[in-house]
Amino acid sequence: MTTFTAEEINAQPAIWRDWAGPLAEQAAIIRDWIAARAPSEIWLSGAGTSAYIGEVLARQMGGNLRPWPTTDLVSVPGLAFGAKGPVLSIQFGRSGDSSESVGLMDLLDAHRPDIDRLQITCNAASAMGTRQGPGPGETRALILPAATHDRGFAMTSSFTTMYLSALACLDPSFDAPEVLPRLADAAQALLPQLWSIERAVPQRAIFLGSGALTGIARESALKVLELTGGRTITQWDSTLGFRHGPKAAVDVIGTMVFVMISPDPQVARYDLDLAAEVRRQFGAKAVMTIGKGCDIDLTPTGTPADPALYVLPAQILAHRWSEALCKNVDDPFHGMNLTRVVSGVKLYGWQP
């Protein structure tokens, strides 16, 4: 069955190759702007998958990056709005029109118009793509290629390309024209392997990773939960954090544990130890490792772009399991409790 979701997953290598040059040009301008504005804090905001972009970036780069989901900033603005010194708010949004995306812009207009904004979106016509703040803070928008505005329910190409685009805007050492084609080659080699994996649907799927891959584990868990319509219960954690209680979710019957093996040899030792431990306790079939030379064998580029490669297994496994469950992959919740774009959320005014 051909689906929008499958097309969008498979399109990622070509999108990254084609976007590398234009991204490098625009990111250089944005980096100079950020340097001139000299923010003491950079907020990374979004809702759901878009929020996880910020989580991965903050774990990848550290420094003054603060992952603040829009769902937190809109409901409890006091958590961050008292920040001193210059602030840059980077907001991610596939549609650019979700309730919380607009809500955060409204709150910044009303209470922190001094904060600079960089809106990264896949929808040029959206509020995020077109709306300017009242100032004195400055607003910039980075509009991704139209192909990243996924038509399927789940965010796939939008997630990876927004992540890579933000990386180019924040990391002066990230050479998009050099790295993205290599990343695309690695993804292109991986895709056939992933589409050939057996479609047996687990009752539970657990994703684990260290550092930036902890954020990818979270996004991977969400992809499977979404596309199976909640039929496969998912969990995510850091590799070392998993032993501290969450490991209780592993069941001998019907649980798959996916351990992302870091490209960093020091970090990988912890990942491999955990995978071996789960195998000893629950059997070899309970674990799949993801990484170079692993059960799911991928070739990292050795750059901060690699998290985009590690999320591909969950995107495709979620699609295959959704099909096996006879779900509408592009709309698993048709007429039910979730929609592709969250709208209609009642937002309340805030008084500091």
Rank of each mutant, 00 (worst) to 15 (best):
A221M: 12
A221N: 02
G209W: 02
S210K: 04
A200Y: 07
L222H: 01
T228E: 12
G209C: 04
A189T: 12
K223S: 05
P246C: 07
H244G: 03
R218P: 00
I253K: 14
D237H: 12
A184S: 15
G230N: 04
A212I: 02
Q188C: 08
G230V: 00
V224T: 13
D185V: 02
D251A: 14
T228G: 14
G211V: 05
Q235E: 15
A200C: 10
I261H: 00
I261Q: 02
L213F: 13
S220F: 01
Q203Y: 09
G254V: 05
L191R: 04
A186L: 06
E219D: 15
S238I: 03
T255I: 07
I216W: 01
V224I: 15
S238V: 01
T228K: 01
L213Y: 09
S220E: 02
K247E: 11
S196L: 09
Q193G: 08
V259H: 06
A186C: 11
V201F: 05
V250A: 10
L191K: 08
T232A: 14
S220C: 06
L213N: 09
K223G: 09
G254M: 06
T232L: 04
S238F: 02
T214E: 12
E219W: 10
K247Q: 15
T214R: 13
R218V: 03
A186D: 13
A187T: 13
I216Y: 01
D185S: 06
S220Q: 04
A221Q: 09
V250T: 06
I206F: 10
K247F: 13
R218A: 11
L225D: 13
M260F: 14
T214H: 11
R204V: 07
R243I: 10
G209S: 08
F207D: 01
R199S: 14
T232M: 07
G211Q: 04
E198P: 05
G215I: 04
I261T: 06
A248Y: 04
V224N: 00
I197Q: 10
A200F: 06
D237Y: 02
G230F: 00
I216S: 00
I216H: 01
A221P: 07
A205R: 08
I253D: 14
P192N: 07
P202C: 12
A200V: 15
